[in-house]
Design a protein around this nucleic acid. Sequence first.
DNA 1: CCTACCGATCGGTAGG
DNA 2: CCTACCGATCGGTAGG
Lengths: 203, 203
Amino acid sequence: MPSTDTRTGPDARAVVTSEAVLDTALTLFAQRGYHGTALSQIAEILGIRTPSLYNHMRSKQELLETIVRQTLDHVLADFHAAVKGTDDPVVQLREATRVYALRHATHRREALIVNRDTTSLPEPALTAMRQRRREHERAIRSVIARGIESGTFAVGNAGLASFAILEMSVSIARWFREDGPRTAEQVADEYAEFALRIVRYRP
Amino acid sequence: MPSTDTRTGPDARAVVTSEAVLDTALTLFAQRGYHGTALSQIAEILGIRTPSLYNHMRSKQELLETIVRQTLDHVLADFHAAVKGTDDPVVQLREATRVYALRHATHRREALIVNRDTTSLPEPALTAMRQRRREHERAIRSVIARGIESGTFAVGNAGLASFAILEMSVSIARWFREDGPRTAEQVADEYAEFALRIVRYRP
DNA sequence: CCTACCGATCGGTAGG
DNA sequence: CCTACCGATCGGTAGG
C-alpha cells in the first residue's frame, strides 16, 4: 500500500528512506568531499535532525564505503560485460573504454567521490577497494598488451597507456553536463576512439 | 652565517621555518586531503605545538591558498614558456603537454592537492583559481583549434580533446615514482606523444 | 522521528 | 617557542 502522506506544511514530519540518505550523501560528498561534509548538512537537506539519520545508516564511514564499493563493483561488472564475447583487443579496448567513460558521464557524483575520497576509507575496506581498482587497471593493461603482441597496437608501454586512458575518462565526471551539447553516449564513443589512438591502432 | 644548531636530544627546541611548515602541509594535504588534515598533525611532525605554527602562517586556509596559487601560476608560466617562439600547433601542443606532464611527475603533492582541494578554497580565491585553470584549458584548446583549422589535426572537437589531454596528464601524479623504471622526462615525452595521437596528428 | 547530551577534536587567540 | 584556554562543531548514543 503506497503512502499517501504528502504533507509539507509546518506540521509535516519528514519521511526519509535509506535511499534518500545515500542520495543526499552522494550529492554533498561529491560537492565538498567526505571530510568536508558534516552529517548535520545531510540531515538539514532531508529536513530531519542529525540523530535521526542513524535510523537509516550505521555511520558516516559506512555511507562512504557503500558508495565506493557499489561504484567499483559496477565498474568491474561493466568491464566484464564489455569484453565478453570477443577476443579482439580492438573491440575489447574500445568497449571497455566506452562503458567506463559512459559511467563517468551518467554517474558523475559517484565517480568524483571514488576518485577523491577512497583513501579516506579505514582498513580493511581501503585495501579491498584499492584491489578492485588495480584489478580493473590490470585488465585494461592486459587487453592493450595482447594488442601489442599481435601487432595491432603500437604503443611502447601498456601500463602507461592504460593509466592515461583511465584517467582521461575520469575527467568526464568533472565537466559533463546532461543538458550540454553532447549526450553521454556521444562523449563515451569519442573517448573510446581516443583510447584506440593512444595505443596507435591503425584501422 | 649558517645555523650550527643541530640539537636533537630531549632538550632540543625545534627550529622551524615557514618553508618547513609549507612542506609538511604539502605532504599531509596530499596524503589525507585538506579537510582530512589537522594542524596538530602538521605541528607534531615538525616537533612543535599547534599554536607555534602561527608564527609561520596566518591560517590553515592560507596554507592551501598558497599551495594552489603557486602551483597554478607555475603551470601557466610553464605553458607560456612552452609555446613561445613558434606558431606551429604541433610543436606547441607537444611542448605544452610535455611541461604539464613533467610538472605532474616532479611536483606530485602539489598536483594532487590542486586537483582534490581547490574547491575547498573560500571566495574570492576559489573564483580566482578556477579562472587560472580555465585560462590554461582554453589556451590548450586554442592550440588544438588552430591545428584543426590548418588541417594538421583531425579531431572532431577541440574542447573534448583538451580536457582528455589535461586530465590524462594529471594521472601521472597518482602513479609516478622517482625510483621507478622511467624518468619524469621520459614519461612527459611519452604523454606529449599521446596528446598528438588524441588530436590525430599524422607526421 | 525527536530532545538532550556526550567526549573528542577542531582552528585559533591571549599572553608570556 | 611555550602553556592555558576559547567557542564551535564533530560523529555518535541514550532514551523515548
